[in-house]
Structure formats: C-alpha cells, structure tokens
Design a protein around this nucleic acid. Structure first.
Lengths: 198, 198
DNA sequence: ACCTGAACACCGTTCAAGT
DNA sequence: ACCTGAACACCGTTCAAGT
C-alpha cells in the first residue's frame, strides 16, 4: 500500500467544480463552506485563501461559470445567435443547482464579457439593435431553461434520500427530452425571425 | 401615554408580508428566522407555530405568493393571456428579492392552481395546445423579468449602506421604465401571434 | 505561500415550559 | 392556542499560528 501521496493543491477551479457538484446534487442550501472543505479534503478555512471574499465570491464565481458562454460567429447573425443560445441553454441545464444564481445575479467578469462579445458579433453582422437583440435572446434562454428545469422535477430540498451518495437526477438528464429540444428550437426560430423584421 | 396595547396576533399572512419586506429590502440571504421574528416583534420560535416546516415552508410560501396570479378571462384567448402575463410580470417585479425562488421552485398550491386555471381559460377559448401555450407564456414572462431585474441593478448583497433602515430601490421602481414596458408588450404580441399560427 | 485550530457571532430547529 | 427560554448542532469568518 503506497503512502498517501501529497494532496492535489487547492485551486479556484477545483473549488468551483466541487461547489457545482454539491449544488447540483444536493441543492444550493446545502452548499456550505465546511461541506465544500470536506469534499476537497481540506479545512473550510483554506478556501478563503483562494476566494478572499468567501461565500459571496463563491456564489459570484458559480454564476459566472455557468453563464460565461462563448460561441464562434456563424455565417449569419442568425447562426451566431443560434449557436450562442444553444450553448447557453446547455450550460444552464447542466447545472440546475445554481440556476437561481445565474438568472438573478447581474453578469460580471467573464459573463459580462461574453455578452459584450455576442453583442459585437451581431453588430458586425449588421443587425440593427444588437444590444436589444442580445437582451431578448438572453431572456428567451433564461425563461426556457427556467420552465424546463421546473418541469424536470429538479428541486432544492432533496431531503437526504436514504444516505445515498449519488445525487438525484432529473428524469431525462444530459440528452434532454426531445420535446423540450424542439420546443426550444421552434421558439428560437420565431424569435430570430422577429428580431430580423424589426 | 397609553399602555402598550395587546400585540397584533401573528398570522401566516403577516409573516409572509414581513418576509417579503426583508427579502426585497436586504436580499434573500439576510432573511433569517431571527430577523423575521424581530420584524414581527416576536421570538423567532413563534413562527414555527404558523409555518410548521420552518424556513423551507417560508420559502415555498414566498414563491407561491409571488407566483400565484389570477386574471379574468378576456374576450379572446389573446386578451386572457395578455392580462395574465402582465399581472405575472407585475407581481414578479414587485418582489425582486424572491425572484430566484419564483423562477426556480416548481409551482405548488395556489401557484399550480393559477397555472391550471390559465390553461383552462385558453382551452375554453379554443386554443390548440393550451398547456404548451401556458408553458411558453410563463417562459416569456420569466425571462423578461429576469433580465429586467438584472438590468435594474437590483442585487442581493446590499452590504449595509450606512445603517439606513429604508431598503435600496431600483432606479425606476413601481412604474417601470417605459422602454422595458414597450419591449415587453412587443415581445408578447409576437409570441401571441406565433401561438395562434401554430 | 498555503493550510490549520481555536474562537466568535450568528443561524435553524427542538422541546419543555409558561400563559 | 400561542408564545418564550434555553439548548444543540451547525454555519460564515477572523486571526494567530504552524509548515
């Protein structure tokens, strides 16, 4: 049996990954500095060294992580917008535990940059009101994911289901129910048509 | 100076009102059973008598309160839907502090009933897929309000602004910036047109 | 530079007790 | 029936101390 090898050093990235795992698996209310420390095999206080503003910084980082989405510009502004919306939806659905933060926290850091980037793409492609279009696209994605996740049955409480270690998962996870997918695409098509005719 | 009159008895309604006031004014993270007790001039433990499941029940009640919206049926299904969406938007905007709960908690109780009611109204008016339409309308309102509130600058932290007692308020509160209003109405028109043509 | 241990103020919740 | 007081386990955060 080899001796316990030196532990992987803590990092902002590892902290965020572990936090997402807890939030998605057990709900945001159970994401605790102490529990997070346990998951990282470290005392909770060690986290403050990497996230000086503590739990507030952690929440900001989680919202930013799930909301800072990049997509390559497409052949038309419609293709650009479509790719960005699909990527945004996927990122949000992947992490239902922090959806409340993502929909609610004002975009900062890389999230704000991603929005600016997308606005520029639409502007470069000649769209009339790119800022307004991005607002409308973000609203569309936010609303669609919110009702999807509500419908999926994902819920905060998750009162300890018999000490199971594996987190509860919505019925159709990852792949996504095909019905929701086509609904999303149809609504997106309609929205893009409306934005073009404005 | 009259003697202190017998205190108003606690009630579910008074508790929820006080909780909304705290959440909207200071953010959800500062809504605490003890602070809520203080606001009601009562020990925190008294609250459990009216909300047996404690803070979880309080959160559920807040989401339900802000999300259980009734609107009278109109002359057409479009008018019914429009009135319902406007009322929903107003209710959500009125209470930015619990928006995260409203967008995230699966509808229960009076909130679920309100959805069923609206579905029935659209069905009675002869709309093809009333359940799908209500999903789309809810998504539209959710997304619109989420980006509106983000844009408004409302934010959780609200790190004690100099011990002020009055809560921070978004730039244009209550009335609402006219630009956001017309954006909302235009998007809603487009969505209703799309739902009719389906 | 990075992590720990002990400490502090505060939190949710219970339970027996008061009226 | 309704509320309180004391208690318990747990939380976020600080700070000095270890390596």
């Amino acid at each position: 049996m080899p001796a316990k090898r030196p532990p992987v050093p803590l990092s902002r990235e590892r902290i965020i990954d572990a936090a997402l795992h807890i939030a998605d698996g057990q709900g945001l209310r159970r994401l605790t500095m102490r529990r997070l420390g346990d998951a990282l095999e470290v005392e909770a206080m060690a986290i403050y060294h990497h996230l000086p503003r503590g739990k507030d910084a952690l929440m900001d980082a989680l919202a930013e992580h799930v909301t800072a989405v990049h997509a390559e510009p497409g052949e038309s502004w419609q293709e650009s917008a479509r790719a960005w919306c699909r990527a945004s939806r996927a990122a949000l659905r992947e992490h239902p535990g922090v959806l409340a933060l993502a929909l609610t926290k004002p975009p900062r850091g890389r999230a704000a940059i991603a929005i600016r980037e997308q606005t520029d793409q639409l502007a470069d492609a000649g769209l009339a009101d790119p800022a307004g279009a991005v607002r409308a696209l973000r609203a569309y994605v936010f609303g669609a994911v919110a009702v999807e996740v509500q419908q999926s049955g994902w819920a905060e409480p998750q009162a300890d289901p018999g000490d199971e270690n594996e987190p509860w998962r919505p019925p159709s996870r990852g792949g996504g129910s095909p019905e929701a997918d086509t609904d999303f695409e149809h609504g997106l098509d309609a929205l893009l048509a409306g934005l073009g005719a404005r």
